[in-house]
Structure formats: C-alpha cells, structure tokens
Computed example of a mutant assay.
Amino acid sequence: MTSTLSARASKRSTRKFLEPSAIAEAIAIERHIVLAGYQALTHYSSTFGLTEHLVREIDDAARRHQAIVSQLRRMHADALAAESISSAHKEALAALGLLEPSRAEAVGVTPPRPVQVCHIIQSHPGRLGDPASRAIVSLAFLLVAVHALTDPTNCGTASPSLNLVPPPLHRDRALLEKVLVHAVAAFDEASTTELTGYICEASASFAGWSTETQRGLSVLRYNPHSLRSSCRSVGLGEVDARIVG
C-alpha cells in the first residue's frame, strides 16, 4: 500500500518539460512561416484584395508574433540552462540562429518539415520571377500553421515547464478567415486553384511533422478539422477532402 501511494505521489510530483528542440522548432515555424506569411500579406495586399483596416490587423498580428518569438527565445534559454548542452547541440542551435555566432559555429541542420516544403515550393524555377505566386504559397502555409501551432507563452507559465495545455491561435484563425474572404473574392479561378493546391501541400507537411514530433511535449497540435471548417467558411469547400489528417 505504501509503495503504491509513493508511486502515485511520484507521478504527481513529476514535472514535464518542453524540450529545447521543441521550442526551437516552434521558433523556426514562427519566423519562417507565420511572420513571413504576414509580411507577404502586407507587401502584396492588393493581390489579396485587402483593405487598409485589415492590413492594420495583420500588422498587429505580426507584432504579436514577434513578441511570441522573443518569449520563446527566453523559454529556450531557460530550457537550455536546465540541461547539459553538448557542443554538437550548440552547433545545431547556432545554425538555427538561436545562439550568437561567437558561442558556436553554424553547421547545417534540418529545419522542421513545413519550413523545408515551403522553401522548396517557393524556390521552384517557375516561381522565382513571380512574387505574387510566392505570396500565395506563404498565405497557404500561414493558414495551415495557425491551425497547427499553439502559443506556450500564453498558458499561465512562460517557462520551460509546460504543465498547462497552451491555447490554439484562435485570433490568428479568425484573422486568416477574414483575409481569405477577401482573397477568394479577388482571385481568378487559376489563383484560387493554386491556393487550394498549396493548402493541401502545406497540410501534408504539417501532418507529417505532427507524426514525427510525437515525443514528449510539443507546441504542435495540428487540427485538420478546424482547417477544413475555415476553408469551407470562406468558400474553399472543394479543398475539404484533400486536406491531410
């Protein structure tokens, strides 16, 4: 009986931690997909038929995510301080821009799958001279990202210990729905088809990444159901069956 109670007490007292690698992945997604996506929307607002008021909302969202990245960096530093860091790990972090160059040499590391896929699509020779097409890619990946990421800086504890489930990015989801309403109205059939195709590719990359990162705690909770609902609500129902997950 005593041993059983001790085991239960031990389980209750065990604190789970968000690993530095999981925080680093979140930072990469925030920087290369979320912030890059919002930047594309403001730079090509006319392409998406966005109003000045909506652009201001996008600017506010970008500032909010810049603050999230700053907080994630502090959380990352806390997490690193809590464990012994090997020189190889430091090199990987430096390559992601998470350490000053003077503290470690940059070496090649593999970014999260969605970042890789987005980069590959945008780097296609046929899109290099077409910034509007690359902006559509950015919008598609941004849309899927806000249905995959959570905000661990807004869960009552901005520390490496993640004992509370971080909330989804509800404000961003609502904003992207408004953006898509304008974009769908402004697009011709070819652009709409292009957007839905990229949404499907983005969903596949996040679904695959979600499977790969099922270790320990993560800021990733890819939700294909909410993604489908958002697409249907803005008139992109044809993409429903092709969204992965």
Results as ranks from 00 to 15, higher is better:
G216P: 01
P152W: 02
T110I: 12
E52D: 11
E52I: 06
M1I: 12
D130F: 10
E52G: 04
S45W: 03
T196D: 01
W209R: 13
D60Y: 05
T2Y: 08
L5T: 15
S46I: 03
D172G: 14
G49S: 07
L54T: 03
E238I: 15
T193W: 09
L220T: 07
R134N: 07
Q66W: 08
T14C: 07
H53P: 05
R74S: 13
V34H: 03
Q66T: 14
H170V: 15
A24R: 01
A79F: 01
H32C: 11
S45A: 14
S226R: 06
S233A: 08
A92C: 14
R63A: 12
T213S: 09
M1H: 11
L93F: 11
I29V: 10
C118W: 11
L149S: 04
V115E: 10
R113F: 14
Q214N: 12
A79S: 04
A106Q: 12
L41N: 08
R12K: 12
F17A: 13
V115Q: 05
L176T: 05
S210D: 14
L50D: 00
T213C: 08
A202F: 04
V146R: 03
R221T: 11
S230Q: 02
R74M: 10
P167H: 01
L18P: 04
G216V: 06
F141A: 03
H119N: 15
R134I: 09
Q71H: 00
V219R: 02
L195F: 05
V181G: 02
S84N: 11
L93A: 14
V144P: 02
T4I: 15
G129T: 04
L162A: 07
P166L: 00
A104F: 05
P101M: 02
S133E: 14
P101R: 01
A140L: 01
E212N: 12
T51M: 03
